[in-house]
């Protein structure tokens, strides 16, 4: 299966581990991801806060670069996924938005004809590849690995896929890999996003609630689908522990890293050394 691929900015820097593990598992899954040439930033949650027109233009340019019926566009980041889908929604529902973007793009030769369907990588793996195919590829089941599945917010809310309050896709995938999926009430709560920089007192509390429940239910790792969630949950545990008087640390891994591990890929291929909180110890038992 061939898809267009929009990695998003994080995967080339702070989420290089996500990028590495995505590339690692693609061959096994018989997926070909063709990176959209010269893609730009989607605007995250920042640009929509300050300029609604820029917030349409930025994602729309990516849609134009991926247009002309070149196939579905796969996105590994929850926020990029939401932003690109939202522009499509706005173009379909608001004539003013549609006409303005078309007109502006026309002046520089960009066309939005035959726009791709926007899909999250998790959605493609669960719905297109299918869990039975995933199961066939498992050579090292994640036996006894206790996980909580954290989908984060923007993947599952209106316009997204899966249940907005109690998403299931990630749980089913992890079970297929042989992991023990623990009940987790924070699976679609917010990690705090960019508030971690502007208003850390707020974001640290949001991340703390997620981390604390994960530790309390006995998880060995939190599985994530988004580079923003990974960063906020992984990189600030020292600060959170001292601020809220907490103990212990918990590694935060991408679902693609655990898939690669279960498929028998080499740990170095999956960026597993890049976690601020190292997952090495809890993953020892997988071998």
């Amino acid at each position: 299966m061939v898809y267009q691929y929009y990695p998003g900015c994080s995967l080339h820097a702070s989420a290089r581990d996500y990028d590495e593990s995505v590339k690692g598992i693609m061959e096994k899954l018989a997926l070909e991801l063709k990176e959209v040439p010269d893609w730009n930033c989607c605007g995250a949650t920042v640009i929509p806060s300050v300029n609604q027109w820029q917030a349409q233009i930025l994602p729309a340019r990516n849609l134009a670069l991926a247009a002309e019926n070149k196939g579905d566009l796969v996105i590994p980041c929850n926020a990029c996924y939401m932003n690109l889908k939202k522009v499509q929604y706005n173009m379909a529902h608001y004539r003013e938005v549609r006409e303005k973007i078309t007109q502006i793009f026309g002046q520089v030769g960009l066309r939005l004809v035959g726009m791709p369907k926007v899909r999250h990588l998790l959605e493609v793996i669960v719905d297109d590849v299918g869990l039975s195919k995933v199961k066939e590829l498992v050579t090292k089941p994640l036996k006894d690995l206790k996980v909580v599945c954290y989908s984060g917010c923007q993947l599952v809310r209106p316009l997204g896929f899966d249940d907005p309050e109690d998403p299931q896709a990630l749980d089913r995938l992890m079970e297929t890999l042989g992991a023990v999926v623990l009940p987790f009430s924070k699976k679609s709560h917010c990690c705090g996003s960019s508030l971690m920089t502007t208003q850390p007192e707020l974001a640290l509390k949001m991340a703390d609630e997620i981390l604390e429940e994960a530790k309390k239910v006995g998880a060995e790792t939190i599985v994530v689908t988004c580079p923003m969630c990974q960063l906020n949950l992984d990189a600030f545990q020292n600060q959170i522990n001292s601020r809220f008087n907490r103990d212990g640390q918990i590694p935060v891994t991408y679902f693609t890293q655990l898939m690669g591990l279960a498929f028998g890929l080499n740990k170095n291929q999956l960026g597993l050394k890049r976690g601020i909180v190292s997952p090495a110890k809890v993953l020892e038992k997988i071998g």
Binding site: M82, Q154, R157, P158, H189, C190
Partner: peptide, 8 residues
């Protein structure tokens, strides 16, 4: 400015 855009 405290909204993190979680859409809950």
């Amino acid at each position: 400015w405290k909204c993190a855009s979680c859409y809950t």
